[in-house]
Nucleic acid binder design. Sequence first.
DNA 1: CTCAATGCAAATCTTTTGCATGCTA
DNA 2: TAGCATGCAAAAGATTTGCATTGAG
Lengths: 153, 153
Amino acid sequence: MPRGFGRGRAIGPPWWQGRFRGAGYRLTVPREAILDVLSKTQRHLSAEDIYLAVHKGYPAVGLTTVYRTLELLAQMGMVFKFDFGDGRARYELSIGPKGTRHHHHLVCQQCGAIIDVDESTLARLQDVLLARYDFRASLRHVAIFGLCSNCRE
Amino acid sequence: MPRGFGRGRAIGPPWWQGRFRGAGYRLTVPREAILDVLSKTQRHLSAEDIYLAVHKGYPAVGLTTVYRTLELLAQMGMVFKFDFGDGRARYELSIGPKGTRHHHHLVCQQCGAIIDVDESTLARLQDVLLARYDFRASLRHVAIFGLCSNCRE
DNA sequence: CTCAATGCAAATCTTTTGCATGCTA
DNA sequence: TAGCATGCAAAAGATTTGCATTGAG
């Protein structure tokens, strides 16, 4: 099981333990393994990606549990679930010891590259949508499709 | 089969016949029925929605043909395929006798309402993404999630 | 000790594909 | 008539569910 996170904390419970105990959920081996995988990547993993990664260390963990855990984590607000239009959902840790991450993505329709977009880039859009359409955009699940610079050559 | 479109043209071939003949595709009963359904709604229909609507007038048309026709129409640029994150694709006619339509949508995560967004609202965003990320956003398949005014009360 | 959590298998749901037949051009 | 288009059935792929068992608190 993962212990510590970042440079200055070699020993101690992972940062997510409190979130589980506080909410009344049980901290189990599969759940810790899944959180461990998510916390160690910058990529946008599918349920099967996570299953395969977890499976290496814990072959007993099944795909069903991965799906159920991801649903729980999404409900707890600890992961974001994205749909990049390729028929499978992608998951990304939304919070960590260092705070919240970026939440917008540019998806290249040619090569499938995914570019993370800074929060501030879409901040103005949010205001426009609220003023013009009375719609409060969450802007946490924005995926914009197009062509990246490589594929435009 | 549908004949005419709009006020001033009671008789004459539907506006899409030329697009089919010109491209070398055959104009069949199922294809006309599907286009007829799409041209008569303002809603965002799923493949099954279209299948059910077509099925009323032409019970022999199968769901497979609906999917294949929609794929062809999307490839021809006559329909846009949207993913609103509910596990099924939605389709909308992209062109008509009156020209192109809007292509952006606000999806309410509470009630599922879909609000059409004017093209110009996102035009500026396109420039920003190109300048800052060297990414050419198509902005034809943008779905932004959030809460509509009703569900915020 | 209790009941939430798990694993397995089977079910679901949407979309795709194989193949023989039908129908447009 | 030729070959694209179709319908049916089955396949495929992602996700969910039923149920008996396990293990965290």
